[in-house]
Amino acid sequence: MTDTPVVRAVNLVKIYQTGALPVPAVRGADLTVDAGEFVAIMGPSGSGKSTLIHMLGGLDTRTSGEIWLDGRRADTLSESGWAVLRREKIGFVFQFFNLVASMTVADNVELPALLGGAPPRQARERREYLLGELGLADRADASPAQLSGGEQQRVALARALANQPRLLLADEPTGNLDSRNTRDVLRLLGKVHTQGQTIVLVTHDARVASMADRVVSLLDGQIVDDGAIPKSRRRPAGGVGDVVELRS
């Protein structure tokens, strides 16, 4: 692991101008994410979580403040500068999967690699590997509309990982999934995290957040908490749990 953090945001501010009224969404957020870290961003709806992660991925412009990605100043980049940065270093997963409707699953997953300049053969190999890992190898030629929500989100994850990005950003990745599909997606996230993937995700779901090393809480556009999730004092030993007691 290198010393330079993958993400460093300094006093990040976003103010939306709706009509004559300026509406602050993020008010001076400071955030540093080291390589290999898994950070969950939580907070009530409207607290600025999505805006924050969109700004980190360059999907939205910041009003003021600095964003450093992988040691490079990114907030001053132009729109296309950000686009190039995204295709090289960032994978994005959305709540509504957002697979490109007109393209097959295979094309959706190969697209970022091709966009990154990989030769078609290499893109295909990477896609076959990823879909195989996610158990979707047989759905390669399906159109996204033929997949279930969980399958779509797994494909979206495969697409986000296609270029082996330095940073995986996810905005409520399980917000639209049932609990079984949520479990599948979580297992995958856990897996890539153990392989050293840096992840920042916004979530409402405690199960998702509990995967993280660190939780960041937002309230009214400000970070009110940022710290590691502690090791449980009551380690369940040898798999014998005491759920009922937890609740008693």
Binding site: G57, L59, E79, S80, A83, V84, L85, R86, R87, E88, I90, F92, F94, N98, L99, V100, A101, S102, L111, P112, L115, G116, R159
Partner: peptide, 13 residues
């Protein structure tokens, strides 16, 4: 929506 997705993947304007 698809276009927005493409841009989020790193397609420039």
């Amino acid at each position: 929506r698809d276009i927005a997705t493409l841009k989020s993947l790193g397609f420039t304007r």
